[in-house]
Write a protein that binds this DNA or RNA. Structure first.
Lengths: 179, 179
DNA sequence: TTAACTGTACTGACCGGTCAGTACAGCCGA
DNA sequence: TCGGCTGTACTGACCGGTCAGTACAGTTAA
């Protein structure tokens, strides 16, 4: 195996875990299954993450940091609601998937969702603080969350064309809601 | 044990499963844990549901039938969006909790969510069909979903007073959206 | 009598975690 | 420049334990 592949094994393990959750469900997320999916041994996975719980926490933190970074990288003049929407849109496409991380962490111990809860509450506060109509802003914030969860469970499964229209509509609300 | 308690044991088992998922996570949802929570033996749980998978499916079906019944029981002149909102409001408070059922079924096998997916898509179709502004209707539909998922993961955790205001706002949208 | 259990005793599969050992790149002092 | 040493990244065998499911004899209440 080439060096580049070998040094990226930590990330590859997380990506393997994500695929297992999405395709088979968290009940089948075992260290052995992750190892097989990432094409290494069980010992190799343990070597990198120490324990299953630590692996789960790493999966959560990677997803949260990704979302957080995408939120922070929005231009300073972006409204909080538009930033919230765009951060989700940007992080939904690429791994690490927040949905898989939430499912896996909630399955192991609901308290492991705490860092995520803090992040979501802080973002809602941002959105509400700058909105002319706070309740409408909360509803739009929830619509973005609904979009995310819908994708997570494959409920409606909007077509990309519908998604684009819905996101444009949310952008319009974000603009109209600015103080 | 009195008759009423004994004949309701099938429902009590489902309720016990729900509490375990909510408090400890689906990874700790074992037949023995359910039996202990429902104050029954492991054999008793197996006697009623046959297998863990069947228990999970029963949990899902009970939650879905509850939501479906509450949707259907709305007066005929209620808009689909208002019915969607009210069905969720009515079924969120009482067991069987859809959230726990979704988590547990998705953990075991993501395909077990299929009946739920069909229901959600049918409800969205209802809402879109009668809306003067279909995309706005979709957004409001998603906001209701967002509210449900938010509760499921305890993300924002809105206060009941905020919830009441948000629901009133959604009702207002439902009325304005009618064709 | 029968439905609805309980309790006990298993089986076989699987799971998380440990451990000894391997491979190998790179450093470092003589 | 070469032998010894270190750190990183694993592998594969294994252990103690848990889990779903089976089997079955006995109990209890209507």
């Amino acid at each position: 195996m080439a060096l580049a592949e070998r040094t990226n094994n930590r990330a590859r393990i997380l990506d393997a875990a994500r695929r297992i959750v999405e395709q088979r469900g968290t009940a089948h997320l075992t260290i052995e299954a992750v190892a097989a999916e990432a094409a290494l041994s069980k010992g190799g996975v343990i070597y990198h993450y120490g324990s299953k719980r630590a692996l789960l926490a790493a999966l959560r933190d990677a997803a949260l940091e990704d979302l957080s970074a995408r939120y922070a990288e929005q231009p300073a003049d972006t409204s909080a609601l538009a930033a919230w929407l765009r951060a989700h849109r940007a992080s939904t496409a690429a791994p690490p998937a927040l949905g898989a991380a939430m499912l896996a962490n909630a399955a192991e111990d609901p308290e492991m969702l705490d860092p995520l809860r803090r992040f979501v509450r802080a973002r809602l506060d941002d959105v509400v603080a700058e909105a002319a109509d706070p309740d409408l802003a909360r509803l739009m914030f929830l619509a973005v969350l609904g979009l995310r969860f819908d994708e997570m469970f494959g409920l409606v499964g909007f077509r990309s064309e519908e998604l684009t229209r819905l996101e444009a509509r949310l952008e319009a609300f974000a603009e109209a809601l600015g103080t």
